[in-house]
Design a protein around this nucleic acid. Structure first.
Lengths: 119, 119
DNA sequence: GTTATCTGTTACAAAAAGGATAGTACTTAC
DNA sequence: GTAAGTACTATCCTTTTTGTAACAGATAAC
């Protein structure tokens, strides 16, 4: 499996772009992370992810179109809606974990840099 | 290592945000992918990644500040500049690979969906 | 009837990101 | 001196993204 030829790199770039198209932006991955703790209602999601209803609505629609979340209307007193991760969204586990991991280690690196500077 | 508590999820969200702050947006990961095939000059990068000089300049500066690429001015006839990945950028390998992998599989999934539809 | 909750939408505004075009500065080649 | 190649920067503009505030429809509690 040779890497770094002009062609394989071009494919890699396209694949990365494809992923970013679906899951890029400020919110989608965060929403998935939040939903990993279980299904949530609209307002609940809005509060937990600290995202305004307008954006949340749009993001959820896009994610539903891409098969990442499912939307279920419940026949309750005030109609509630449950958003839940789909099985397909689990294919993003590696992506989520790697981003999360890097975020941790990068923050630690930054903090250490600050500590060294202040000595 | 319990997961999905309110607290661990909040941390996960923050970590993901941290990562996206550094490496999010349309270009940075793509530029890293391109630079994985070796150091490149400014115009060369601009051509290969199909990115306009203005944006490229800005992105490279940010990436340099975050320690992901190094900039080396070479004392050649027309002064050239070499951009190269730093060792630190290698910590992003998992991120790159997982995004790339997901992009491939997602594209295949889409294509299959189309094939089924057209029958 | 007023207020509250839930799920959104609409209208408007602001900000961030991205892109197009040209120009600067330097050097070499013709 | 004209053109061409290097590495950018400056200006202007469009698009995308994000945010705020208000509102709508439905139901229930007081």
């Amino acid at each position: 499996m040779e890497k770094h030829t002009a062609e394989s790199c071009s494919k890699a770039r396209m694949a990365i772009r494809d992923t970013l198209d679906v899951v890029g932006g400020k919110w989608k991955l965060v929403l998935i992370a939040v939903l990993q703790s279980g299904k949530k209602g609209f307002n609940q999601l809005s509060r937990e992810a600290e995202i305004s209803p307008r954006i949340l609505s749009k993001e959820l629609q896009e994610m539903e179109m891409n098969g990442l979340v499912s939307r279920k209307v419940c026949d309750t007193k005030p109609v509630t809606v449950q958003y839940e991760l789909t099985p397909y969204s689990e294919t993003l586990t590696d992506v989520l974990l790697s981003l999360e991991k890097w975020g941790y280690q990068h923050r630690n690196k930054i903090i250490q840099g600050i500590e060294l500077t202040s000595k």
